[in-house]
């Protein structure tokens, strides 16, 4: 057994395709971008080597940390909303009527491209013609906020569509995980007189722990490098109030022609994400693997 499963040739054969792909197409660009970060370069003219200057400037850049704060807030919100997604998945995976149909409906926003989602929400939030304020007016709120224009609200206003859009993604994963639990285990618990809530918390949750911890990493990493909706809906504005790390990086590298600095910011983004992920993995690490 041990001999077969530690045969180097087989291991290489199974890991090589994926490893080669990411090495060539992800790591080489990554290293190149880290290298560009060492340059004073507009992306077009001559490169001047300036050592760690860009990285140091990045660490001292208030705007960068401001955007990092927003990214962290998004990561925190995303992580907490996992609990809601998980709850919904529990309900759907228990054998209630119509759960199959509901599950499909829940995933719809995820199927649409971000362009469509962004357009929809921009229209919802429109202060004069939008649905949201029309509704607030109707229930008697006279001066509803101008959602995307108000710097103290805009960030949260933009989180909602993101959390909404990703609901389907996590429900899909949790649902598959819950459906993967052998019926016999649950049956056994039921015979022992466990309530549905007890089964969910004591049996199912521990069994899909590994999956949950993977989704936590996905949610955090995904949030820290999030770009799409924010860029379309506010472009980071007004005046940086909804800027996140990735949109800040994009602005520097693509709009401001500060490619060296933008690359350095991109690299810092990655380092920050790495550190956070490392901590999260340590915290959520499972000592023993559970097998069914």
């Amino acid at each position: 057994m041990n001999k077969v499963m530690s045969n180097k040739l087989f291991i290489a054969f199974y890991i090589a395709p994926a490893l080669l792909m990411i090495t060539i197409l992800i790591f080489i660009p990554l290293i190149l971008s880290g290298y560009y970060g060492l340059m004073d370069w507009d992306g077009i003219g001559a490169k001047t080597f300036i050592g760690l200057e860009n990285y140091i400037a990045g660490i001292q850049d208030k705007l960068f940390w401001n955007s990092a704060l927003h990214s962290f807030l998004l990561a925190i919100f995303s992580t907490f909303s996992l609990a809601i997604y998980l709850l919904v998945s529990f309900i759907l995976a228990s054998k209630i009527k119509g759960s199959d149909f509901l599950r499909k409906i829940y995933l719809i926003p995820m199927l649409l491209s971000s362009v469509a989602i962004a357009q929809l929400w921009v229209k919802m939030y429109n202060p004069s013609n939008g649905m949201l304020n029309a509704f607030l007016n109707m229930i008697g709120i006279d001066n509803p906020p101008t959602w995307l224009a108000n710097p103290s609200i805009v960030l949260y206003a933009i989180f909602i569509p993101i959390l909404w859009q990703y609901a389907g993604f996590y429900i899909l994963i949790y649902y598959a995980a819950l459906k993967n639990i052998p019926e016999s285990l649950i049956e056994a618990a039921r015979i022992d007189g466990a309530t549905p809530a007890q089964i969910a918390l004591r049996i199912k949750l521990p069994l899909i722990k590994e999956v949950v911890s993977v989704t936590i990493v996905l949610a955090i990493v995904g949030s820290l490098k999030y770009f799409d909706l924010i860029y379309v809906m506010t472009a980071g504005g007004p005046n940086g109030a909804s800027e996140v790390m990735a949109s800040y990086m994009y602005k520097l590298a693509f709009s401001s022609y500060n490619f060296g600095y933008g690359s350095a910011i991109g690299f810092l983004l990655l380092v920050i994400t790495l550190i956070v992920t490392f901590i999260i993995r340590k915290v959520t690490a499972t000592k023993e693997r559970i097998e069914y």
Partner: peptide, 17 residues
Amino acid sequence: LFMVGLMIPIHSALIPL
């Protein structure tokens, strides 16, 4: 390594790619 691969912002990779 795969986890790091998850973290790269695509706009960083675009020009090198």
